[in-house]
C-alpha cells in the first residue's frame, strides 16, 4: 500500500500531464493536461465520443484501458501504478455512468465490506456495526432514500435514478477525497437531480476535489463548477469559468469538434 503524502501548497490535487491512453487498438486520450486544485470543482464537457468516460476509467484503473504515455497523480501519488482498489483506498471515487448490479449481495453488506477494506488499507480500524448503521441511516435520510432499499441486492432491479442515488449514497458513506461524477445527471428527473446535487454539494470541502463529467449544462446549475474544460478528440481544447458552460449550451460543440 502506497502511503498518502500531504499535498504541497503549489501542486494541484489531481494532476494529469500529457496523458495518452488507448482501448484495444484505438487511441482515445491524446495528450490530456489537467490540474484540479484542492477545494475546487471542475467540469469536463464535450461531445459524445470525446473520451470523457475513458478519462474516468483511466483514472480509476479499469482493465483494458491502457496508458501509453503521460502521468496521473493524486496528491503526488502516481495513480497509474496502483490497483483499482488501492486507488479507491487513496480516496478516489468514481460515480459510474452505468452502475453495475451485484446479484445476491445486499447493498449494505457490500458497502460495509468496501468501507472496511478501504479503512484497513489505510491502517484505520474497522467501523463498528452500530456506527456503520447509524451513518447509513443518516446518509439515507439526507438523500431521501428508503432504508429498506439498502437491504436489497446491490442495484438489482433498481431504476436508473435509484442506481444514481445509490452511487451518491456510497460517495457520502465513503467520504472520498477526490470524486469523479460520470454523467450523474442522466436518468434523473428534476426532483432527484436536486436531491443528488445537494448530496454532492454537501461533500464540497477545502481538502476535497471533484471532477464533474457531463454532456449537458443542466447539472452545472446545481453543482456550480469553479472551472469548465472542453474535452474534444482526447485533449482539453478550451478552459474557462462557469460562463463557458453556458456558452456551450447556446452554441454547442461544433466549433470544438472542428478545432480538434
Amino acid at each position: 500500500m502506497t502511503q498518502m503524502t500531504r499535498p504541497d501548497s503549489t501542486a494541484a490535487m489531481l494532476s494529469l500531464r500529457g496523458l495518452h491512453a488507448r482501448v484495444g487498438d484505438r487511441e482515445i486520450l491524446k495528450g490530456l493536461d489537467l490540474q484540479v486544485p484542492s477545494g475546487e470543482v471542475h467540469a469536463i464537457m464535450g461531445p459524445n465520443g470525446a473520451g470523457k468516460s475513458t478519462l474516468s476509467y483511466v483514472l480509476t484503473g479499469r482493465p483494458g484501458y491502457e496508458v501509453t504515455a503521460g502521468s496521473a497523480e493524486l496528491d503526488g501519488v502516481n495513480l497509474l501504478e496502483l490497483e483499482p482498489d488501492e486507488r479507491a483506498a487513496n480516496g478516489l471515487f468514481l460515480s459510474f455512468q452505468y452502475p453495475l448490479e451485484i446479484p445476491g449481495v445486499p447493498a449494505l453488506t457490500f458497502i460495509r465490506s468496501a468501507l472496511n477494506a478501504q479503512r484497513k488499507a489505510r491502517g484505520e480500524a474497522e467501523i463498528s456495526a452500530p456506527d456503520f448503521l447509524k451513518r447509513a441511516r443518516s446518509c439515507a435520510a439526507d438523500l431521501k432514500m428508503d432504508f429498506d432499499m439498502l437491504k436489497r441486492p446491490m442495484n438489482v432491479g433498481f431504476s436508473g435514478g435509484e442506481k444514481k442515488r445509490m452511487e451518491i449514497f456510497q460517495m457520502a458513506m465513503f467520504a472520498p477525497r477526490f470524486m469523479i461524477l460520470d454523467e450523474t445527471d442522466s436518468g434523473l428527473d428534476i426532483d432527484a437531480l436536486k436531491v443528488v446535487s445537494e448530496g454532492v454539494n454537501a461533500l464540497r470541502a477545502p481538502d476535497r476535489g471533484m471532477l464533474v463529467i457531463t454532456h449537458y449544462q443542466r447539472l452545472l446549475d446545481h453543482i456550480r463548477p469553479d472551472r469548465v474544460h472542453v474535452l474534444a478528440d482526447g485533449r482539453i481544447v478550451a478552459s474557462g469559468g462557469p460562463e463557458l458552460a453556458l456558452e456551450l449550451e447556446r452554441h454547442g460543440y461544433d466549433k470544438y469538434a472542428r478545432a480538434a
Binding site: E83, P84, D85, F174
Partner: peptide, 16 residues
C-alpha cells in the same frame, strides 16, 4: 469483469 472492477473501485481487493 465489469462487476469485479466496480467492486474494486469501491475499495475491495480482487480476492475479496
Amino acid at each position: 469483469d465489469d462487476v469485479l472492477f466496480y467492486m474494486r473501485q469501491r475499495g475491495l481487493a480482487e480476492t475479496d
